[in-house]
Simulated scan of single mutants.
Amino acid sequence: MLMPAFHFNILKPYMKIFDESVNIMHAKWHLLTLEHNACLDMFEHMNLMTLDSLQKCVFSFDSQCQEKPSEYIASVLELSSLVAKRNQQILLHMDFLYYLTHDGRHFHRACRLGHDFADAVIQEQRHTLPSQGVDDFLQAKAKSKTLDFIDVLLISKDEDGKELSDEDIRAEADTFMFEGEDPSYDTRTSGLSWVQYNLAMHPEYQERCGQEMQEFLKVCEPKEIEW
């Protein structure tokens, strides 16, 4: 049921989203250089850029989290940190003990906030579906060039024609937004940050990469990286 979300025709238009998210990050870096800031936390910037892209691809939602605080993104980051911390404390693996602690109460609050956000998006998009019908819904989405992950789940049916419940859809969306699976934002952030660090440590390779991109962009119209 999830496989259509990974079809090339679904993924290709996401390149425009990635371009936009990276451009926002580059603009922030440009301002930092104008202010003569020599150092920045690469992981933090890559983290926000990745989460920005994920939110747009999973929910079709622009939180502008790279430019201003986002309550939902803050809950994602807090939950990731709390899960890692909890894993190191065996006694707190038991829920009834964990929820009595300070961290447990924060975890419960952040979970509720994250679930409320996802539920609101799912409900809004589900209400659009009956009024349009699946075919009209897909045509409208085709005009906007992107079909997000929630869209694919909403129109999915099993072999018996049964749709996914809102709770099922939210669980799948959470899997993508939070830790625990290969597509998680933290995996991507770590990989991208490590690449940037190594390019900074080896400027001769950074120069070669830059030259290759400049040559590519000379023949690229419009001046965007496409699939």
Rank of each mutant, 00 (worst) to 15 (best):
P69V: 01
P222Q: 03
T187E: 08
I24Q: 09
P130G: 04
H45R: 05
Y72A: 09
A120G: 04
S53W: 01
G104M: 07
A142K: 15
F6W: 13
I24E: 11
H106T: 07
H102N: 09
M1G: 04
H93N: 13
K223M: 05
K223E: 06
H108P: 02
R126H: 10
M3E: 12
L91F: 00
E204Y: 06
D103Y: 01
E204M: 12
C111Y: 04
I10W: 06
T50Q: 06
Q125A: 07
S63V: 06
P4Q: 01
L54Y: 04
E179D: 13
K141H: 06
N198Q: 15
I10G: 02
V83D: 13
F43R: 10
K218I: 02
Q123L: 03
E163M: 13
L34Y: 03
A27T: 03
Y14A: 08
Y99G: 00
K16Y: 08
E212K: 00
G161D: 00
T187R: 11
T33F: 08
K68W: 01
T33I: 02
K68C: 03
M42P: 13
A118D: 02
Q89M: 00
S184Q: 15
Y72H: 04
R86T: 15
H115W: 11
G104Q: 09
N198D: 11
L2D: 10
L2T: 03
F178V: 02
V219D: 10
M49C: 11
P222V: 02
S144R: 15
C220R: 11
T175L: 13
S21C: 15
A74T: 05
L154Y: 05
E71G: 01
Q196Y: 08
V195K: 12
K141Q: 10
E167H: 07
T187V: 14
E20Q: 08
Q66M: 03
G210W: 08
Q132S: 13
L11A: 09
G114K: 09
K162A: 10
L138W: 05
E226N: 14
W227P: 13
E212Q: 04
H45Q: 06
S131G: 15
F8Q: 09
Q88H: 12
R109Y: 14
E212W: 00
H36L: 08
L100P: 03
W194C: 15
L113C: 05
D168L: 11
R112A: 07
R112I: 07
C111Q: 11
M1R: 01
E159G: 15
V83G: 10
H26F: 10
D148R: 06
V152L: 14
